[in-house]
Every structure is written in structure tokens, then in C-alpha cells.
Computed example of a mutant assay.
Amino acid sequence: MPNSTPNPFNQQVIDEFRANGGRVGGYFEGARLLLLTTTGARTGTRHTTPVAYYPDGGDQVLVIASAGGAPQHPDWFHNLVADPRVTVENGVFTYEAEAVVLTGTKRDELFARAVEADPGWAEYQAKTERVIPVVALREIPRGGPPNFTASSPGEAVKVIHDAFRRELALIRKEFAASGTALGAQLRVNCLTLCTGLTLHHTGEDMALFPFAAERSPELAPALDRLRHEHERIAALLEELRRVLAAEDVDPAAVLPEVERLTRELEAHLTYEEEVLIPVLEGASAS
């Protein structure tokens, strides 16, 4: 199936996104960004567009078809209505997803959550008579290992770690702007991070660390340290979940937990990269 050529601005963002594991500068710097590839409703051509997103826990993320408050829906929205099977690149993984256009109270609830996180969405809605759509991108399960966007196992570890670093930086920034009330979307962002870290560390304990131990037995003390750090981080994540569960929690009560998690996780990720990346790169070269 042929691919279209994006406009120069989008192409620059796409190239930078793919070259840097999802990290971009300029207009989108510091934003949660994904690349959404849809199939043209009229042409059948594949179109890739950079789109801002929100975590929604589990296996779906949310995108908003605002088009900056323009009178018409963006082209990518028309495409996914015609063919809801899309491809998502998040800087770490590339996966197929089903695009579900949310309606009624569910759409209104999630749009209100987005507005609470960024009032700019309300400004876009006020500029247009159309109801700005909210779309859930739900990952389609597949067999086999995930489709990493990295070219080697060592690079994959670094790309995953950098994604967690970026998300923690975003969450800290959001806390700084949150005032005295913990918004629903910020709560979701924190809980989604907790789930992602738990799954990542579980996978390392079950697969990556045994592989490294078999290939380099001398790493046993370092791997024991990494497992112990996983337990420590799991305790910090559980404490963060506990604080977030309070109904009227003050962001000032959550931020210290996020800062503590950030400090310990940063140290852990750096040490893990020093220990494991040389082993993984050696395995891929042999």
C-alpha cells in the first residue's frame, strides 16, 4: 500500500521523532506525541501524522481531533472513521490499533478531563460549531515479541528508559502547574506510569536478567542489586498508588512521592544501562 508524503513541517517532526526514540524539539517539545498512520478514505494511501495524546491506562491512549478549532475535522480523523485499523508509533514500540470514536457521556467526560489538563482544548472547541471528537486508540494484541523501534537490544533498553525519564519529567511539570487540586488526567498519567514500570520490571526479572546471567555469570552481584532495586521501586510505586487513591488528595502531598521515585529510578536506570547494555550489544554482535 503506497505512503503519502507529509507536508514539510510534519515530515520534519516525523523524521526527528523516529531518529530520537520519540523525542522532538520545536513546537512539540515536551509534549506527549505519537505518530498515527491511517489509510486514506478516498485514495487508500497511507498517511502518517504527528498527534498529541493522553494516557488512559491499560492498552489504549486518547487523541483529540481538534484541528486547532478549524471548521472541519482533520483528514486523519476522516480516514480512521472509514478504516479504524491504524498504526501507532510511540517512540518505543510500533503497533496496530483499533480507533474507536467515543460518543455521548463518555466523550464528554474524557474531553472535560483533557480540558482540565489543558484549557487550550476548550478554546479550540469555542472556535468551532462541530463537536471535537475524542478517539481511543486500542492496541490490537499480537503474538510474539513486541515490535521495538530500536535497532539492537541495547538500544531498546536505552529507548525504553528514556521514555520513562521523559514521562516522569512531564508529570513533575504537570504537578508544578496543577495548583491545589489533583486533576483527573494527572492522576491517570501517574497510574499509567506505575503500571508501565511494573510491567517493565517484571519482564526484566523474568527474561532479561536470566539471559544476562547465563551469558555473563560474573554479573551475578550486579543483577542481584538490580533485582533489589526493583523491589524498592515497587514499594515506591505502591506508595504512590496509595496516595493517589485518596479522594481529595492535594498535589503537594503527591509530589514528594514522585520526586522520590524519580531520584531512585534515575539512579537505577543509569546503573542498569552501565551493566547490561555492553552485554546486550555483545550478544547482538556475536
Rank of each mutant, 00 (worst) to 15 (best):
R23K: 14
A213R: 13
A114R: 05
E247H: 08
A207P: 10
T5F: 13
F111H: 00
R85A: 14
K106Q: 15
G25W: 01
E264T: 07
V258Q: 03
T39M: 07
A176M: 09
E239A: 13
L36T: 00
E238C: 08
C194V: 10
C194W: 10
H78P: 06
T94F: 02
T37G: 00
T38R: 04
E96Q: 15
F209W: 09
A122C: 07
Q72I: 07
C194Q: 02
W121P: 10
P8N: 06
T45A: 15
G21V: 04
V157A: 06
V86F: 09
S151T: 12
V92F: 07
N147M: 10
F209P: 03
G22H: 03
Y27E: 15
S66H: 01
P146D: 08
L137R: 05
P74M: 06
R165C: 10
F175T: 01
P145Q: 13
V157M: 10
E218S: 13
D15T: 09
T103N: 12
A176K: 11
E155K: 01
I64W: 02
G120R: 00
Q125E: 10
A99I: 11
I64L: 09
E218G: 12
D224H: 11
L226N: 09
D59M: 06
P74F: 05
L280D: 03
T39P: 04
G44T: 02
A222S: 14
E204N: 05
E229P: 07
N147S: 15
N20K: 08
I171E: 10
G69K: 02
S66T: 03
H73I: 00
L199C: 09
A117S: 12
G154K: 04
S284I: 03
P153N: 01
N3H: 15
V88K: 02
P145G: 13
A176G: 11
P217G: 11
H73Y: 15
P71M: 05
G69W: 00
A252C: 04
K158Y: 00
R260I: 01
F209Y: 13
T262C: 11
T48G: 03
H230R: 06
D118K: 11
